[in-house]
Design a protein around this nucleic acid. Structure first.
Lengths: 334, 334
DNA sequence: CGTTCCGGATACATCGTTGCAGAACCGGCG
DNA sequence: CGCCGGTTCTGCAACGATGTATCCGGAACG
């Protein structure tokens, strides 16, 4: 068996509780005693049993991260940064993939997964605010992304609308007038897609360019959907001189399809994306996109969640954090 | 407070232990009793406390996954599949990023991380076999990847050498004779890179094409390193008509650099990679590569680890599993 | 000199579950 | 009728830590 506190106590000639006190930085311990305990710990190679500690204290030192699919580059990078940020503060991150399904999201919110964590970072895609509100327990929950924007919940996101507007302005400044949009969803106004679309329309309006619904295509935020959408536009004979993918995967899929069909990027059609995943820099041509300040998002969301867990943050209604963004002008839309 | 077994017991009019027995599928329980307990559980919405269960049983139902960096596409996809495979069998996966550092790898092998998991999937990059052997505890450990191939350890990997040879043969069949290799490491023969390089040399030898060390460049397995390596070759005036990136990231970085410099792919230089990450399909041109049968790797490694945990697999020395591969011929090297 | 106060350590209960041993009950058999 | 073996259920201890209450001894105080 592993070494327990009792063994340490015996070796140090003190009570079990004194060992516990040393470990928990209890204030009133004679230096000599503390030293004896620490020596015993070192000698025996004692390591605290986290499970027992969890049972007693009710804390697990784990944060849950619910996202649709870890293999999506954006989420993979986000998860990686969140883990790093959490680990700096002594927490681990346990990831749960929901596959963007309602059932899985609900389960992550209520089931055993919740029990294993002290707080949740949640990227809801299928559940709506009321549904979440009804099922959210007592443990802290911070929303990521923009599918659910609701004053009841803490939220860390980016300036979606502003960023999309800035990107669209850049395309307009480059002389583009017919900018196709990929990845819209029906009736979505609150989500990230909706906000980005709103930013796009805002920039068009400023420039006096009419909005043409025929240029807006729907689809999942994946490479293959981007390719398919562009294929659809081309086959339908819709004219366009730029493509704005609501995320990078869409834009990269679109760019691939354009190049296959002999459409030159950026000469014939400029392409821009959103997220600045690592791949965007190394695509050919490299992809113009918006960097969402992911480090800031990771840092702020961990901070916010830990403040809630620790009770430092006490705002009754949701705290909304918007990270700064940065335009990344590259070859695909110079 | 949450509902405990005691509450359920009271509600069902049985002892606490009977509730436990029902939950653990104990054989001798009258159907009527079982029903009463199950009704009480449903009515109270009881959920077992996993922490307490872990403390008592010594099992956590979590598997550890140690890899260098979750944001690398290959690892992200692997992690995602491993999680899915594990979840099918009632296990969760806890990921730890080592950043390819020795200290971090050692910590993952011994520290609290180990405690939280029933077994480990380990992708060692910095530690060697003896070091691992000295620090591996009693809990099961399955190696992934090829940096450490040692009869002492269980290992799930792919046919690196065969796959690299097959890919090289394909390039040779296309008339390429000067095939540059990106991503070699000094003196590595056992690791994945070493095996792939060996496969490359094997195919060259078969074809009677001399091996030219000037064509082999070293570097990390990342996009930027691939770009840098190609830049180095071009600047040094080394002639080559094909590039074999030891992984896809390298190949994609290389392709980017080639295209930037006006070298046509595949007309002037063919490019091939290794891993078949999703991005390879959507690159422009799409990337010829080797698919390592990641689903099989995920499935087999989870199976093997669980067999070890459950004591089903009892081979004294390491079990070595090699997943099948598949050549993916695409535009970059038709 | 007796009392109060506090630093320093301890004993015991407790978190929610499972393993072990055994009690109570039942029908069948000698 | 008593004993036996199997079924059904129960009580107690234990997993390894922390919270609460308490105890003890010495310094400070009146």
């Amino acid at each position: 068996m592993a070494v327990t506190m009792n063994d340490v106590a015996r070796a140090a000639g003190v009570s079990l509780k004194t060992v516990s006190n040393v470990l928990n930085d209890y204030e009133f311990i004679r230096p000599a005693t503390k030293q004896r305990v620490e020596d015993a710990i070192a000698e025996l190679g004692y390591e605290a049993n986290l499970t027992a500690r969890s049972l007693r204290s009710g804390k697990t030192s784990m944060l849950g991260l619910v996202l649709s699919d870890l293999s999506a580059p954006y989420y993979a990078e986000l998860a990686s940064r969140l883990m790093t940020a959490a680990s700096r503060r002594g927490y681990r991150v346990l990831v749960e993939q929901s596959g963007a399904g309602q059932a899985a999201e609900r389960k992550a919110l209520q089931g055993p997964f919740r029990q294993l964590t002290d707080g949740l970072l949640f990227t809801p895609l299928a559940m709506d605010a009321d549904d979440i509100s009804a099922r959210v327990g007592t443990k802290p929950l911070v929303m990521l992304g923009e599918h659910v924007v609701d004053p009841r919940f803490d939220l860390v996101t980016m300036k979606n609308q502003e960023a999309a507007a800035a990107l669209t302005r850049h395309l307009l400044a480059g002389g583009r007038r017919r900018i196709a949009v990929l990845g819209a969803h029906a009736d979505e106004t609150a989500g990230g897609g909706g906000l980005r679309l709103t930013g796009y329309r805002e920039a068009l309006a400023e420039a006096g360019v009419p909005f043409d619904p025929a240029l807006v295509t729907k689809g999942d935020w994946r490479r293959d959907a981007g390719a398919a959408a562009v294929a659809g536009l081309l086959d339908a004979g819709v004219e366009f001189d730029a493509v704005f993918g609501l995320n990078d995967a869409l834009a990269l899929g679109a760019m691939h399809e354009l190049l296959i069909r002999g459409v030159r990027v950026p000469q014939d059609v400029a392409v821009a994306g959103f997220d600045d995943i690592d791949e965007a820099r190394f695509a050919s041509p490299s992809l113009t996109t918006v960097s969402p300040g992911m480090d800031e998002i990771a840092e702020r969301s961990i901070s916010l969640l830990l403040d809630r867990i620790g009770g430092t943050e006490t705002a009754a209604s949701g705290v909304h954090v918007e990270a700064a963004f940065e335009l990344k002008i590259r070859e695909s839309a110079p």
